[in-house]
Design a binder for these strands. Structure first.
Lengths: 223, 223
DNA sequence: CTTGTATTCAATTACTTCATTGAATACTTG
DNA sequence: CAAGTATTCAATGAAGTAATTGAATACAAG
């Protein structure tokens, strides 16, 4: 094989991975899988895609090496191939935010209006949590919380926040987090909490980004 | 705008960037641009694409925010938008290498046969160079060398290596580098040098990866 | 002002991608 | 064994992508 031929094949292979990420739905599926493994049916429900369509996208992600799968009875569970995929997604997001004005405008118009404050860096939150001066709030659905969450985090899905305010100490700061840096649930939670008089902030990033920084993750349902 | 609408638009924007990288030729153009800014004509020549085709690919990369351009007379010069694009390309490459068996097989069959030794980490090379116990060899074309190179690197394009062996001290180790971790030129250089009795190794990565690690870069033609 | 150079644009053709639909396959339950 | 469930497959039509070709545009030189 010539040098040119080799190079072209190599770049073509790299392009396969990029192409697999070249559709909004597949990126969303990857973000869901970053929270923990899910079945096809679960992914179809949470994404709003048909099962057949979800299956097709997952097959493409599988062929690109971004996810792996395992069978359990009739169900097929998918997961990210590794933490490096989270890193790749983070890198992609950062480039888009920085160099695409459409992206920064979209984020500004929709998210920054909800929370203009800088999010709390992960290592800073870990420090505050260890000092016991903050309440960490996970606003994702329970199954995502169970798959993995920040140590000591309280799980109150956004839809139930108003009904469970009593679970949050009023004399402490609250830092909310979600699936990733642009997950609306964390923004909405902070907005609601501030309206109720809480000192609420957002975490910089979500559970996958936290884990990517090598920070500790708990699993299971809270006692 | 609804939460679902916002999320879908955001993912669609991120997908734009990924899709722009979803073609082997565009990834190759990005690797060339990682060495320094180039004109359309230069990129067409070095990539083997037609000028019109090169222009089309560059326009797509521009729209995706991966490159920027400037005009100088009749020429248009393109460059990467930022170092974060190099990081994104590195991340993509790493995921492909790790999770696509076709990629690791391609690399193994074509590159590892040329050089099975582990490449020298960048920080290690910097140390050795500072101690003056190694010769750093840049085997890229002179214009890429001029745009940026490792401090103290000697520029001998591969095609001229045999004729310029006298420029390399025989009593010192030689570490060769090129455009990136899979640039064949560095592998071929090391192969040739070993055949001539030199103690030759490769750098882990190329000039863009070196710069991404925050290491010093020189510019211009060597005195 | 004309000619040459560099680049971009638009149209075309062929190919690929995407969502849908219905069928096929595999596993579970009664 | 039949019916139900979960998932994948294949075909289809619409939309998008990629290379080529020739034209258009912009700038430079004589």
């Amino acid at each position: 094989m010539s040098t040119t031929g080799f190079k072209q094949q190599l770049f073509q292979q790299f392009a396969r991975v990029a192409k697999a990420m070249g559709h909004g739905s597949r990126l969303e599926l990857l973000e869901f899988l970053a929270q923990g493994e899910r079945s096809v049916d679960q992914l179809a429900k949470v994404s709003g895609l048909s099962v057949a369509n979800t299956s097709q996208h997952l097959r493409l992600l599988l062929q690109a090496g971004l996810v792996t799968n395992r069978k359990a009875g009739q169900k097929v569970y998918y997961r990210l191939s590794g933490e490096d995929v989270v890193g790749l997604l983070a890198s992609l997001r950062q480039v888009a935010e920085r160099h695409l004005s459409d992206v920064s405008r979209l984020i500004n118009d929709y998210l920054s209006v909800k929370d203009e404050l800088q999010p709390v860096p992960a290592t800073e939150l870990l420090e505050m949590a260890r000092e016991g001066i903050v309440t960490v709030l996970d606003v994702r659905p329970p199954e995502e919380y169970a798959a993995g969450h920040l140590p000591g985090a309280v799980n109150i899905p956004l839809a139930e926040l108003e009904a469970h305010l009593d679970q949050l100490p009023e004399d402490q700061a609250v830092v909310a987090y979600c699936r990733g840096p642009h997950c609306v649930l964390a923004f909405d939670a902070v907005e609601q909490l501030r309206q109720k008089g809480f000192n609420a902030r957002r975490l910089d990033g979500g559970l996958p980004e936290w884990r990517l920084e090598g920070l500790p993750v708990e699993q299971g349902i809270r006692s």
